[in-house]
Amino acid sequence: MAIKKFVVGSFDDEAVLFPAVKKVRKAGYKIHDVYTPFPIHGLDQVMGLRDTSLHTAGFIYGITGTATALSFMGWVFTRDWPLNIGGKPNFPLPAFIPITFELTVLFSAVGMVLTFCYLCQLAPFVKKHHFHERATDDLFVMVLECTSRTNEEDAKAFLASVGAKEINVQVAEADWWLGRYDKDEKLFENKAEKSLA
């Protein structure tokens, strides 16, 4: 939980956004995030974000599923309760393939989705500060975090110079909290303003 001050600039064209992100980074501003209504390929690279390793996690979950299925069925049919089914061996590998495959996929998919939700802090009743309500419609919203060395006015002017259409300063919670979207909670508003003043 941290209340911070942000300079927010909204762009209406992704073609303007790309060079803007580059320039802003070059000028040394700290980009808190860029909010876009749809995925923009390459934006993560331009922002200098690390590639995600979600795939690797998915692979690990998958082989966990494979191992679980094979070892469990193997244990049941060779140790716990061996049964003669159609005269086949007690460990009939071909007959185990379908379930093994399904569990591989199930573990991998469920694990990845949960990991995704955890990493992005997404869950029902989770609420975050939204810098612009059209960020999910047609605006590309670049949010700069003000550090102790940031001059707001300079930052605003700089954003305007790189093509931002709407620019403002917002003080907001940078993290998530449990809340409702129909209520406009002002979290620790007074405290935050005091501390920043």
Binding site: V34, T36, P37, F38, D44, D51, L54, F116, H130, V141
Partner: peptide
Amino acid sequence: TGSTKHWQR
């Protein structure tokens, strides 16, 4: 929110 990192993931 539409965060770039979230989109990437």
